[in-house]
Simulated assay, not measured.
Amino acid sequence: MQPLFTPAPADSGRGAALGVTGVIVVISLVAVTIAALMVIPVISNTSQHLGSLVGSGVICAENEDAEQPDASGYANDSIPENYLELYQEAGEDRDIPWNILAGVGQVESHHGRWDGPGITEGHNDWGAAGAMQFGSLDGSAAGNSWGGEPIQAVEDRPDEGYGLDGNDDGIVNVYDPADAIPAAADYLVEHGIEDDVREAIYGYNRAWWYVDDVLEWADRYAEGDYTTSDSQRNAVVCDLDQEGEPIGDAPDELSQAVVDWALDQRGLPYIWGGTGPEGYDCSGLVMKAYESVGVTVPRVSQDQWEFGPEIDQGEEQPGDLVFFDVQREGEPPGPGHLGMVVDDGLMVEAWCTNCGPIAVREYDDPNRADIVGFTRPLEHPDVKSQLEAQG
């Protein structure tokens, strides 16, 4: 499902949201520009918040986000009773927070009460329809993530799309919240809400301000304290891979020191142009990691890529660098983002202002930009000379 979506950028596997007001794309560009100047708060780098450790990718604890909070008084007063029940049922069934679904429903349609086009019939100007604003019109900007006609018999529903018969009435109806809300839950699950709440919501509507709005409503709807940062925090403190083995086990003492230093920066914020100690950008983190062992490498990612030496994919090991096909206007040619390999398929990275703190993430994630390649700076002749000079 890609509600209110335009086609995804070439380097993305997801669509981009247009928004219920029809101005999301324009506003999001401004919002992202402003967000680039902001600093996110530091997330606690302690393990006391983690439950029993289990192997699950970079998530080392049970998904606490899946625990269903009680509805606040505000939720009971402001969400229509039938919608509240549907959000809670879908959240319980899919093991995702019901209040996140409610936040999506509020931002998309005010829980079906917005009087704009496409909520109870027809489509908006971009081909989205229903309370959860699924794309449901072939050939439209939003596409048809619902799958088939907006209203169709169960037996006519195609294999593609997220539309379903949530209330077992034999009809798959994008305008029926009993069908659309569990379908939205399935979409969030498919886009990895168990591992990264913010990224999953971003996949629903590609604007970071939209993510913030959804989470603000989710917080209002939950009784008492509620956090959606557990998976992110786990990625900050995680020390095990999916087999339950320690990450960051480098092949030699020097690489180990570089990896240890980089992992110790987890929890600090991404700061554009940052070289510490308050925070770092992607290349600043790498530069300082190698500087910690007395090695000088170039400052920016494009130069770090050229510095090399390049190694074949599949041969990478902790301490190596992985580069991504990210290019920004005004920057020199070459990969504009990188991370440091810490395990098979895992890296530590400073990603972006809105992507969370420095943390361990997967580098072979299909939702990330394409990998350009890998390098091993400790094998560079200049680096070897620097190390020899240290005695």
Rank of each mutant, 00 (worst) to 15 (best):
H380W: 06
G294K: 06
S140G: 06
I79T: 03
D168S: 15
D115K: 15
K384G: 00
W209N: 14
P269A: 08
D264E: 15
Q327F: 13
R376V: 00
D241E: 08
V259H: 01
V58D: 07
V154C: 08
A31E: 14
D212R: 11
V42N: 10
Q48E: 09
G13A: 14
I119E: 13
G147F: 04
Q327M: 12
D168R: 13
E278R: 13
M340K: 05
V54F: 00
N124L: 01
R299T: 11
G116S: 08
W208G: 05
D115F: 08
L188R: 06
T227N: 03
G284V: 09
D312I: 01
V42L: 05
D364E: 12
V172G: 05
P117L: 03
V372A: 07
F323K: 01
E306L: 13
G143K: 09
Q88S: 12
E85C: 01
D312H: 00
L37T: 15
P309A: 06
L164K: 13
Y175N: 08
A222K: 05
A250I: 04
C355F: 10
E194S: 15
A262Q: 01
R157V: 13
I24Q: 11
S231M: 10
Q68W: 02
I371L: 00
T228M: 01
P41D: 01
V172K: 04
Y270M: 04
D95R: 11
A31M: 13
V372H: 10
C355S: 15
V104D: 05
Q232C: 02
A389K: 06
F374G: 02
C355N: 12
E92N: 14
G22F: 01
M287Q: 15
V154M: 10
P335A: 14
W146A: 11
L263N: 00
L188E: 10
E362A: 12
D219V: 04
A178F: 06
W351S: 15
G192H: 12
V236N: 03
T21H: 12
D343I: 02
S78T: 15
R233S: 06
S28N: 14
E379N: 14
T228D: 13
D252A: 02
G15T: 05
P335V: 15
M1P: 04
G147I: 00
S109M: 05
A90H: 09
V20D: 07
G391P: 03
Q390L: 01
L254Y: 02
G356S: 07
A17I: 10
S145R: 01
S145K: 02
L378R: 03
V107N: 11
L268W: 04
D281W: 10
G127T: 08
L378I: 03
A183S: 14
P381A: 02
I24T: 14
A131P: 15
W209K: 07
T275G: 11
Q88I: 09
R113Q: 15
D320V: 00
E149M: 01
A17S: 13
P357S: 10
Y290L: 03
D281Q: 08
I79Y: 07
G57D: 02
M287V: 02
V295E: 11
F324D: 07
E194T: 13
